[in-house]
Amino acid sequence: MLEMLSYPFIIRALVVGTLVSLCSALLGVNLVLKRYSMIGDGLSHVAFSAMAVATVMNWAPLWVAIPVVIAASFILLQLSSGGKLSGDSAIALLSTGALAIGIFIISMKSGINTDINNYMFGSVLAISKSDVSLSVMLSLVVLVLYVLFYNKIFAVTFDEPFARATGVKVDFYNMLIAVLTAVTIVLGMRMIGALLISSLIIFPAMSSMRLFKCFSSVVICSAVISVMCFIAGLVVSFEYSAPTGASVVIINIAVFAVFCAIDFIKGRIHLKDSAFDK
């Protein structure tokens, strides 16, 4: 197993992947609670399309995708908060629309083959040396902003009207969450894959909500689960030469199942106890 650490591309994947898993787990708790679970899915499809354009034009993919996806996240927020379109249909429109455009553009140039496959399902080889420094920097920015604004983000997620009434700049924090999510998605999607990246946002949050009942412990547990699952997934994918994204998601499914089981058993024990009390 230690042998895998001798490959530079694995080290790069490990560094970027750990940071991205951390960011996505933290943001994921807020997105799931705000009923925005699918926002990651929509944004990753937009990122796919942006990267397709970048590939065709020979531009640096990250530099194209990040601004485009941030713009898309603004549009999504506006669409769903304006009430003209409901949140889920707005996301569905955006994601399928972007996907179609991306596939169209990429097939003009190279024919449908490896590029699409890599973007859709991810590849550990996708992270180049120059990407690492940018990814590390951006994910550190996401982490620092999240920690700095943790209390406000909690307030906005739990009760928007109250937060607004007490003078918290709700729109700013909603934007902040959207932008941070956009950056995280773009950084993670090439390794995990456009189709799978949203599971990195949803699974850790859902698993930790099974067992933990206070917000801070849900956030911490979700971060721990996410990083552990990523590392385990990377090892599995290396051992079995399987795609990294799929391996990480499978480990996340397993953890979710275990947490559900524990929650169920705890519930039964609790029931039994209260039956004895009577």
Partner: peptide
């Protein structure tokens, strides 16, 4: 919403 009473009051 998973949150403790203290977290809500503090907000």
């Amino acid at each position: 919403f998973p949150t403790s009473v203290r977290e809500v009051v503090m907000s």
